[in-house]
């Protein structure tokens, strides 16, 4: 049997591919959710009453092989409490130009304050915009949470928070939060 010319045989591959499942994603019109464990943008989590989980210990910065994380701790005071216990992260920055999304930081975090989301759209047009500040990384306030600074739930200590027995903000906290007070006033 005479063989088909090489050039025509090549189209056979093309022809067969037409019957295969399409793998091309129509990004950005169509966004396909990544796998659940995909390493995306970081998030700084909150306790159930809205206090921050981050204690400013810098273990994430220590673990980071790319030196992408900058943290400065500070004292919680009686007037301004951001996290249970004594210490909170006053400054928290992740430089996404440096981050290699390895996830060592979230493994290092002793309070599970730092986790990674599935968000991957992290392109931008300047270096400054790619340094994410604490306000960019903090998890949104869910229903039942009150924006810090505010006191811990009355009658609890930081141990109750770490044992996860605090399940939400108490009515007292709603009134003690300056942010809430402002909202009420306006």
């Amino acid at each position: 049997m005479p063989e088909l010319p090489q050039a025509v045989r090549g189209f056979g591959v093309t022809f067969l591919t037409m019957f295969k499942k399409v793998v091309t994603e129509q990004y950005p019109e169509q966004k396909v959710p990544p796998k659940p464990r995909f390493h995306g943008r970081h998030q700084l989590n909150r306790w159930a009453d809205g206090l921050e989980k981050c204690v400013g210990c810098e273990l994430c910065a220590w673990a980071c092989p790319a030196d992408a994380i900058f943290v400065e701790g500070a004292d919680n005071s009686d007037q301004e409490r951001f996290s249970p216990g004594e210490r909170y992260g006053r400054v928290y920055q992740i430089n996404y130009l440096r981050c290699i999304f390895c996830g060592l930081c979230i493994e290092a975090c002793p309070t599970r304050a730092l986790t990674m989301t599935n968000e991957y759209e992290l392109a931008d047009d300047s270096r400054a915009k790619l340094i994410y500040e604490k306000k960019d990384l903090l998890a949104p306030l869910l229903p039942g949470m009150v924006a810090p600074p505010h006191e811990m739930v009355p009658g609890t200590t930081e141990r109750d928070y770490y044992a996860n027995t605090v399940k939400g903000a108490s009515p007292e906290q709603v009134t003690t939060s300056p942010a809430e007070a402002e909202e009420v006033a306006s």
């Binding site: 400013g56 810098e58 910065a61 220590w62 400065e72 701790g73 004292d75 004594e86």
Partner: peptide, 9 residues
């Protein structure tokens, strides 16, 4: 110095 930094900083 309390909570100001870590030795490796």
């Amino acid at each position: 110095y309390r909570f100001r930094s870590r030795p490796f900083d």
